[in-house]
């Protein structure tokens, strides 16, 4: 990486963002390779952000065809049947993304996600998975974790006016400046896998943990138990989802009020993404991926939630491994080394 400089063209194009994260980070971005599965509105926003930021390449995978839902929140797809017929979501998004930044290589990979071998993921620095069942997410996450190189793994889902991002950076070392302008110190964070993070016993989590965490797990369980595609719901499913919630709460020995019915109803009825939330979640995910590639900035560990109803963008640190203390002290416990540098 050393000795290689940004070209004049790159410096001119990326001027404003180099002023935010520096030329070094920009060089790392331009050498990074990103894999993205599931081209819905939120992921389209995310792809736009990283293509503009100037990553090296983006590989898209999604063999589904255009539906009204896809058209509703994905601005990468032109609503013209002559253009979109016969093409997959990934192909259509690829065509649009290419135009955003000629310096980024955008391509489509056609395959069955679950059949991809471990070595396939070795080519990438970042893997982002969306709109697929939790079992698939666990499978891909495990493949990434087994590689000798560290691949940053993310999942993202947006339902109604709520969104969830999961982050697994495995063992992640970076320089942090914290909030003050003091000397930078080296931090190491230990992340949980998707499986560990989504199977934490509810009773051990704080009462103030984002309700969305629990609600998303209920929704996932429902989809899995009923063999549904992600988001394939209707208002008729509400009673069954609420019934499942009661069972889960009982099994976890927590009160039913742990997961508000109103929230679940919103997620079931409004399974379509709400564009402003796509922009927000896609923006945060873009930022997180840029942080992980550049090694600059404090990354999210390990969930991010946004809900229009309270307007908060909240971070939760959830794992099934260590008992959860309060968030501040658990954070410091995760810092294994803290070397103060000049």
């Amino acid at each position: 990486m050393e000795g290689e400089q940004l070209t004049e063209q790159e410096t001119a194009l990326y001027d404003r963002q180099i002023r935010v994260w520096g030329a070094d980070a920009q060089r790392r971005l331009s050498k990074s390779h990103i894999f993205v599965y599931g081209m819905k509105g939120t992921v389209a926003e995310f792809c736009k952000n990283i293509v503009l930021a100037g990553v090296g390449s983006v590989t898209l995978m999604d063999d589904r065809v255009v539906t009204n839902e896809a058209l509703a929140s994905n601005f990468l797809i032109p609503p013209d049947e002559k253009v979109y017929s016969g093409k997959t979501l990934a192909e259509l998004c690829c065509d649009s993304l290419k135009e955003f930044n000629p310096m980024v290589h955008v391509s489509v990979e056609k395959a069955e996600l679950v059949t991809l071998g471990q070595q396939f993921f070795e080519k990438f620095d970042v893997v982002v998975i969306s709109s697929c069942p939790p079992a698939t997410k666990i499978l891909i996450n495990e493949k990434c974790r087994k590689l000798s190189k560290r691949v940053a793994f993310y999942t993202v889902e947006c339902r109604d006016s709520c969104g969830e991002i999961f982050v697994d950076l495995q063992n992640y070392k970076y320089m942090t400046k914290g909030k003050t302008d003091g000397p930078a110190s080296e931090c190491e964070l230990r992340y949980s896998s998707f499986q560990e993070a989504t199977s934490a016993p509810w009773g051990r989590l704080q009462r103030r943990t984002s309700k969305l965490y629990f609600a998303m797990r209920v929704i996932e369980s429902f989809e899995e138990a009923n063999g549904r595609n992600p988001g394939a719901f209707s208002v008729e499913d509400v009673p069954a989802v609420l019934q499942l919630k009661r069972q889960l709460c009982e099994a976890q020995s927590v009160s039913e009020s742990f997961v508000p019915d109103t929230l679940l109803e919103r997620l079931v009825i409004g399974s379509i993404e709400f564009p402003p939330v796509c922009a927000i979640i896609g923006g945060i995910l873009g930022q997180e991926v840029i942080k992980a590639i550049s090694g600059k900035g404090d990354p999210v560990k390990n969930f991010f939630y946004f809900d229009v109803v309270d307007g908060k963008g909240v971070i939760e640190d959830i794992s099934s491994r260590a008992p959860e203390a309060d968030s501040a002290s658990s954070k410091s416990a995760n810092i294994i080394t803290q070397v103060v540098l000049e």
Binding site: Q17, A53, I280
Partner: peptide
């Protein structure tokens, strides 16, 4: 020169629409 990145603008635009 104001330092600017796409992600923050996208998030802020989402918040404006809300």
């Amino acid at each position: 020169i104001v330092h600017a990145v796409a992600t923050t603008n996208a998030i802020v635009a989402g918040l404006i629409v809300i």
